[in-house]
Design a binder for these strands. Structure first.
Lengths: 341, 341
DNA sequence: CCGTTTACTGTAACCGTTTACATTATTTCA
DNA sequence: TGAAATAATGTAAACGGTTACAGTAAACGG
């Protein structure tokens, strides 16, 4: 028995055993050149017999591809990511690629470079704000394939993106609160300050107020970071504070944070929707079963993941790109806004 | 300007520019051998100037490490995975590793090999049933680091595992339904047939029935696969079927599926918990806010992810392992079992 | 029947790192 | 003070694949 540094079986072992050159084995594996029937059969045998698995790193190095795509998120603190990941993973798997999931946000940027990029992936799905416009410009200039998710391209770059319609739908939803349910003091539990969804939803919120002659009161804007626990914390503090600001509704920028909002309201004995109406965004799976059922906006999150990934593969395959995709959203009326069950 | 095949800057470029050998650069990067202060400073300059990023594949090939750990899941259809992923990702990031997430289940096994393994990761967190005992034995024999998650080692292998306590807690919870709320016809919405959590919870369920003199009725066991939509579907079919089997409670193997159960019960106008009590498992974030609030078992899912990953790193670093970790669980009584709010 | 494809195969350079081994200069220490 | 350890660096051989280039034999086309 021969000794070897690495214990794993290599393409050379296969070649030797099958009596062909390594080039032939490689061609057979990648099916990028014809191989005679007998050789093919022999290789099949030998490969299964030896349990040969091509070494990914060697392959990547030689071919200058990784067969990995990366998904860069700010964090993993939201149930929202399950449908997103699901959509992404499905097409990655179909393409026989692998998926690296990494978190990275603007604050970590100073401390370290992004964990994933051209050196270890073939393309990136960028959700995170950790890659600032400058980073995007650099990557884009080097021809690195990227698709932005829930975020649009910096003006001069034209990086493909997939987002959902935010402003109009939010405007409508908030207006519903005002016109149908007579709410006028609507608290906005927003998300991360520079997250586009949050900004757009804030715009829709403000435009609805303006359109209905309600002055914007910045005391009614709280920073929930689109996180359940933070939203709870923030609203709880707000409610516990002696000099309370009156309000009769909460527009929570996302369903997950809405749970925190409901929790805080419940603990402070508000009746929902009678004392305070609550609305969310995303229509996560649990939304119809919250107490009360949550009026929210249905966002096609799994589709966002799927489509973004498909577009990334288009980029990998054809180099072709085509602007911003905005998926439609729809309001789902349930009990929490005051509508009948 | 020189032309080069690859446009990226390599360690040779850095070495040349700094007037040292590539070995020195490598040592500096990996900090595994002393480098003089002047050289260090020069390298720092040159590297940032050239925007040098080491090529992962080349590194992996030469060092026979990937700095990637893999998480193998059956699917991504459950909000349960958010805390799990969160725990895993946190320690992976701290260690400056990368995380590949892949789905693979027993049925895909015939069609293709597992997408991740020794060829592209340094170690695996195995949740999936796609790796059968035989696969685990092979991998283990080759010394490949693995930690099982929500799954215990095949008897003769002693692969480290992290799970949660299922049987006793389920026994207690079901017994609560029987003794406190007088339920006797308890439907069990189980998970995937060979998933250990599901099997154990079924055991706990049966032992509680037995201990209280209630005969086990297999007509009261439904296959919800731990998936919201499937659980809904299955229970809905069950309820729509003319010759209905009487029942007065549902033990759902996990909270996510419990949502499907609640939906089906609501649609068929059952009052919860009066007509039918419902209990779940996991205490996902939304559980206190379902309608009614869900009595469930609190499982420390994020800790499972964290601890499993920490143990995997121990394996990578020390080669040391130590059996099965079982994390404690606790019942959270809420309204859905019939307890007061 | 002969020049030209086409099918199949091999040789060897290359991908961008790490690291064993070698070398020299400088400390350390008995 | 001389031998041995240590610091700092270089040279070149891996690591395990892919692929450009070249070659041979068979099939094709006019």
């Amino acid at each position: 028995m021969m000794t070897r540094r690495s214990s794993s079986v290599t393409i050379r072992d296969v070649a030797r055993q099958a009596g062909v050159s390594v080039a032939t084995v490689s061609r057979f594996i990648n099916r990028n050149a014809p191989v005679s029937a007998e050789v093919a059969e022999r290789l099949n045998q030998v490969m299964t017999e030896l349990r040969y698995v091509p070494h990914a790193a060697a392959r990547n190095l030689a071919s200058r591809k990784t067969r990995v795509i990366g998904l860069l998120l700010n964090n993993l603190h939201n149930d929202f990511f399950v449908p997103l990941l699901n959509g992404v993973e499905a097409v990655v798997r179909k393409k026989e690629y692998n998926l690296i999931v990494a978190t990275y946000h603007a604050n970590s940027r100073n401390a370290m470079p992004a964990p994933i990029g051209p050196h270890n992936t073939d393309g990136l799905l960028v959700f995170s704000d950790g890659l600032v416009d400058e980073d995007l410009a650099n990557l884009n200039a080097s021809g690195f394939p990227m698709v932005l998710v829930h975020r649009t391209s910096p003006p001069n770059l034209d990086i493909p993106s997939v987002t959902v319609e935010n402003i109009e739908i939010t405007h409508k939803l908030v207006e519903h609160l005002i016109q149908v349910h007579g709410k006028r003091r609507i608290l906005f539990m927003r998300g991360p300050l520079h997250q586009e969804d949050s900004v757009r939803r804030e715009n829709g919120y403000k435009s609805a107020l303006a359109a209905n002659g309600i002055p914007f009161d910045e005391k009614l804007v709280l920073n929930g970071e689109f996180e359940r626990d933070i939203a709870f914390q923030v609203l709880n503090d707000f409610l516990s504070n002696g000099k309370q600001v009156a309000f009769d509704a909460v527009f929570t920028g996302d369903d997950d944070a809405a749970i925190g909002v409901l929790k805080a309201l419940h603990e402070h004995r508000y009746r929902i929707p009678d004392d305070v109406a609550v609305i969310g965004f995303d229509d996560l799976g649990f939304a119809p079963f919250l107490n009360p059922p949550l009026t929210t906006v249905r966002a096609p999150t799994e589709s966002v993941g799927r489509i973004a990934t498909e577009r990334l593969f288009e980029l990998l395959e054809n180099q072709s790109s085509n602007g911003a995709v905005v998926l439609p959203t729809e309001i789902i009326f349930r009990r929490s806004c005051g509508c009948p069950a």
